[in-house]
Design a protein around this nucleic acid. Sequence first.
DNA 1: AATTGCATGTAAGGAGTTACATGATTAA
DNA 2: TTAATCATGTAACTCCTTACATGCAATT
Lengths: 198, 198
Amino acid sequence: MTAGSRSGPDHRQAARRSRTRFVVLGLLAQAPGSVYGLRRRIAESIGYFWQESYGQLFPTVALLEAEGLVEGHDVLEGKRRRRDYAITLAGRVALAGWLREPPASQPERNELLLKVFFVDEADLEALRGFIAAADEEARAQLEAFAGIEAGLTAILGADPRLPFWLLTVRYGALGAEALRRWCDEALAVVAGAEASRE
Amino acid sequence: MTAGSRSGPDHRQAARRSRTRFVVLGLLAQAPGSVYGLRRRIAESIGYFWQESYGQLFPTVALLEAEGLVEGHDVLEGKRRRRDYAITLAGRVALAGWLREPPASQPERNELLLKVFFVDEADLEALRGFIAAADEEARAQLEAFAGIEAGLTAILGADPRLPFWLLTVRYGALGAEALRRWCDEALAVVAGAEASRE
DNA sequence: AATTGCATGTAAGGAGTTACATGATTAA
DNA sequence: TTAATCATGTAACTCCTTACATGCAATT
């Protein structure tokens, strides 16, 4: 089946400069698979720093196929149909090009900090709860990261990608540690404010 | 002027559950001002963890006025017209309600980590450059945060909000420190991979 | 005379989520 | 038999950015 030969309506609404397309290309460069599978792989491997929804993935993959950057093949397992995608040579070229471009840092938006900043109108008790919840979440994440680290190391052995994949985990861990430190300081500030309010 | 009495087309396209509206309410609760001024205040005070564009602010403020949560007054300075907005009682109630709700953490998306994760197809030299750039950016941020901290402390004196505002700066500083630590580790990994490639 | 800053706004479109609709297969 | 998992896809909508259009005032 040649590129763009699938019947049905146009899917041209999807991303032209979206990074979703490169996530898809990157994952398919590692191993081919279905859109559904991509979704699962994203959630399991890079989910803590990148997420994609079906509503984003399906149109994007369709577009990539129309552009000849990926190739789809229908697979029949019993009566169940699946469409597996593989990256093409053109796809690898496009991916490599993107990988050479400096990463754009997305502007952060932190709702917790916003609520801290608007402390005037806020309820200190509520604030304390939010901070405690953030701390607990970071604690749980740290635990999870330790597990992922051990798992990756056990499975990958001498794979040259291992140190890089561990690096992405380390990023999460260092961030979570920093967050916990901040929560400590923040709880102290809240406690101080509550004390001086009496 | 009563709520919603401004002439012209409807502005109902804007955000219903957007946090932009609460940023506007929060800032107007601190002090009234123009939309243009809000934009500047956001950039100067909370810009490193929250950003808003005019295309977002103007429709949102118009909507808030239509809902009676803010009130606009035309001000004439010479021949220059300005429209200043102030928060209403209803606005304060809405703001307080939002501040009591647990903050939703936006899903992070980190393009640099993506490029690290796709190291297979990536160029190590390029990667090293990106990491070095991130480190340098974090270094510059740390310097900036130190300045902001000093400035805030000098200006605000005994204002009870000071420790909370400093807290938002601390968040940025702790994050930047964590990033720098990660960059160190990452550069070491890249160096190791480059050495073993020979 | 030109540039920068103050100030208001609109139009178009990209990116992304959520919810929905559908159906087969496998395990409890 | 019921629930979970595998699997594909669309529709509607929100949010948000970018680029544009306009004009006055102050500074260089």
